[in-house]
C-alpha cells in the first residue's frame, strides 16, 4: 500500500471510529440539547470518514469500496489513533476525548488545506467548516465544566489525566507521515503538536485545570494496527450486520 493510501486511510479510520463512539450517546445524553449536539458531531464525522475512506479505497486500487473498508476489516487492520477508540465513560471522559481530538483535527485540517494533493485539499476544506464548530464547542464545554462546580472540575481533571497518555500518538511520525511531508502533501507532526499544546494549555488554564507534563510517557500503536482491548468490541457491534448478512444493503 502506498504511503498516501496509508495516510488517508488513517484519517478515515479516526473519523469513523470516533463517530461510532459518539453515536453510542444517542438518546442517552445528559440533556436533549447535548444529545443533539453529540449526534450532530457524529454525523459530521461519518460524512468525513466516507470522503477519506472513498479516497483511500481509490488509492489502494484493490477494488474495495468505502463500505468494505469500514465493515470488513478486523481490528489489526484499523489504523485509527488509540484516543478515538477509548470508551465513552462519563460525560467528562467523552468531552475531554473530543476536546483533545478536535484541537488536533482542526490544526491538522488547516494544514491539509494547503496540501499538494488537490483531493486532500478538497476534503480538508469541506471538513474544516464542521470541525471549526466542533473545536469551539468542546473547548467551551471544557471551560464551563472545569470552571464549574467542585464535582465537575474534579471529573474533567480526572478525564484529562487518564486520556493524556493517548495524546502523544497524535504527533507520532512514521515512514508514511514522513513521505507525505516530503511531497508537501501533509504537515510535519511537530508543527501540529506545537499548535495543539498551546491551545490545550490555554483552554485548560481558563478551565482552572492542570495540564499534565508534555513529556509524560505516551501510549501508541493504533496507527500500526496495535489497539487497546476496546476496539474489538466496538467493531463487533459496528460490523455485525455486514458479517451476519454479507452484502446486505438497503
Amino acid at each position: 500500500m502506498s504511503d498516501k493510501a496509508t495516510y488517508v486511510r488513517r484519517l478515515g479510520d479516526n473519523a469513523l471510529i470516533l463517530s461510532q463512539r459518539l453515536s453510542e450517546w444517542c438518546g442517552k445524553g445528559p440533556a436533549l440539547e447535548e444529545d443533539m449536539a453529540l449526534t450532530n458531531v457524529a454525523l459530521d464525522l461519518i460524512g468525513q470518514a466516507r470522503l477519506w475512506l472513498a479516497y483511500a479505497a481509490e488509492l489502494e486500487g484493490a477494488g474495495r469500496s468505502e463500505d468494505q473498508l469500514a465493515f470488513l476489516r478486523d481490528a489489526h487492520q484499523f489504523s485509527n489513533l488509540l484516543l478515538v477508540e477509548q470508551p465513552n465513560g462519563n460525560y467528562a471522559d467523552t468531552l475531554v476525548r473530543q476536546f483533545f481530538f478536535d484541537a488536533w483535527h482542526y490544526f491538522l485540517l488547516n494544514e491539509l488545506a494547503k496540501s499538494s494533493d488537490p483531493r486532500i485539499v478538497e476534503i480538508a476544506l469541506k471538513s474544516i467548516k464542521e470541525v471549526t464548530y466542533h473545536v469551539r464547542r468542546s473547548g467551551d464545554l471544557i471551560v464551563r465544566l472545569g470552571d464549574g462546580t467542585e464535582l465537575s472540575r474534579r471529573m474533567v481533571q480526572q478525564a484529562v489525566d487518564q486520556l493524556w497518555m493517548y495524546t502523544g500518538e497524535l504527533f507520532s511520525s512514521d515512514a508514511a507521515d514522513q513521505a507525505m511531508v516530503q511531497e508537501g502533501a501533509a504537515p510535519a507532526t511537530e508543527m501540529i503538536r506545537t499548535q495543539w499544546l498551546q491551545h490545550v494549555q490555554e483552554i485548560l488554564g481558563e478551565a482552572t485545570l492542570q495540564t499534565p507534563p508534555a513529556d509524560a510517557w505516551m501510549q501508541s500503536g493504533g496507527k500500526q494496527g496495535k489497539h487497546t482491548e476496546h476496539l474489538g468490541y466496538l467493531l463487533a457491534e459496528m460490523q455485525f450486520l455486514q458479517r451476519a448478512y454479507p452484502g446486505a444493503s438497503w
Partner: peptide, 8 residues
C-alpha cells in the same frame, strides 16, 4: 443557547 440552537 446559541450553540444549542445551531445543533437543535
Amino acid at each position: 443557547a446559541i450553540n444549542n440552537a445551531r445543533d437543535v
